[in-house]
Write a protein that binds this DNA or RNA. Structure first.
Lengths: 227, 227
DNA sequence: CTGTGTTTCATACAAATGTTTGATCAGGTG
DNA sequence: CACCTGATCAAACATTTGTATGAAACACAG
């Protein structure tokens, strides 16, 4: 590790990471060969092994960056003015996070890679869950708890979180893209969808919370699993 | 194609289909080798090529059966008593369909394979969209239109359909399974979740429909894509 | 310049895997 | 029985692909 020329130094390594991220997102781990990556990066075939030990090492490093970007996006999405109401913070979260995973820019990598990991978990799956998804879900859960007045431990809170998250990530799937007129999400459409998801979910959460006094004591069935 | 002994005749072919479905669902197309399938089916290595031309041919045939099962499940889910209210039919749909894709029996193949296709589309992806997903979405759209009073062409209807569908399929993902206490969905939990999704979505749809008179004319931006 | 450590390169290797092939077997038919 | 047709089999083939290797190129210090 010389310190002579950092720009050229990290150039190849960085180019590999960049090209690999692009290709992994586009085609998935198995449909990308080391040769593809090296060619796209303008590097020699042996470069992957030289810098990352092996293909999986490279993939994991790519995934790390995605996780990092994800955490960053999550923080961003949860960062609201302290004075903002829970509704406003929720709206901000959904819009930001949705834009983050749906946007057809660099960031959309996060969403697509995550979708791939979810359908076809790699050895780095656990890492993704624990480092990115669970912490974010915890924050959403706190928000939901605040919005609904339900205690954080209430099973309904967890499910509401699921309802919200599945919507956000679900719209990032290629199937959703197919359903949209143009075949892909424009910024306007993303905005529109996010807005709807916010309205939809806020009303949904309130309704679920209100079940409390409804005929839905049955809902507590979840705890009936110990019967 | 002899007509002598249909039972033995189709036996190998059928065993291959069965084993392949099992393995494809479990590991995904790329992580299953023709050798795996043949071994599991107790057939010779060449059998796949003999009966299905190649591996992809076998996969497509498996997918066909899944699509068929999906269509069947969709019909079942939409079949309510004619006198039932829209709410009842919606509830029935969500519960049935969710059970269909989440249930850890044979039928769960549909959901899992679909999830895989969605994250990593194969050449049969279009088929899946057009033959299974779109028709089902159309039915859900009709239901949503009826529930909300919005015209079927209203973009909000499409998004509500998306919100509902993403929830149903989203809960079938391995990530969702991770989030549940036991690590997998029991029948009771599925029921509980489905119940919540119904409440959540009914309220959500009503809220979105009510936006009509809200400050959300902006939502019509969706049609602004032709600008 | 010479030596040293790092990077890049062409090439080779080994394993996995989809596909093909030609032989063999089994059952029915004339 | 002789013949044919379809099914099964073991073996081989060709390709892809991840990985390893050793030499060459390069940059820089002494």
């Amino acid at each position: 590790m010389s310190t002579r020329n950092p720009t050229v130094e990290l150039e190849t390594r960085e180019r590999l990471l960049e090209a690999a991220a692009e290709l992994f997102v586009e085609r998935g781990y198995n449909h990308v060969t080391v040769r593809d990556i090296c060619q796209a990066a303008g590097a020699n075939l042996a470069a992957v092994n030289y810098y990352f030990r092996d293909k999986l090492g490279l993939y994991q490093e790519v995934l790390m960056k995605v996780i990092e970007s994800m955490k960053q996006g999550s923080s961003l999405a949860h960062a609201g003015k302290p004075g903002a109401s829970a509704e406003e913070r929720f709206s901000h979260y959904v819009r930001t996070f949705m834009g983050h995973v749906l946007n057809n820019g660099r960031a959309c990598r996060a969403g697509k890679l995550m979708a791939r990991e979810m359908a076809d978990p790699s050895p780095a799956f656990d890492l993704l869950i624990e480092k990115a998804i669970r912490p974010n879900s915890a924050r959403v859960a706190a928000l939901v708890s605040e919005l609904t007045g339900l205690p954080p431990a209430d099973p309904r809170v967890g499910i509401c979180v699921g309802c919200v998250q599945t919507q956000i990530t679900g719209f990032a799937s290629p199937v959703a893209a197919r359903m949209v007129p143009g075949g892909h999400f424009t910024a306007e459409i993303i905005d529109f969808v996010a807005q709807q998801v916010v309205e939809f979910s806020l009303a949904g959460m309130r309704a679920v919370a209100a079940q409390n006094n409804g005929p839905v004591r049955k809902g507590r069935q979840k705890t009936s699993k110990h019967r």
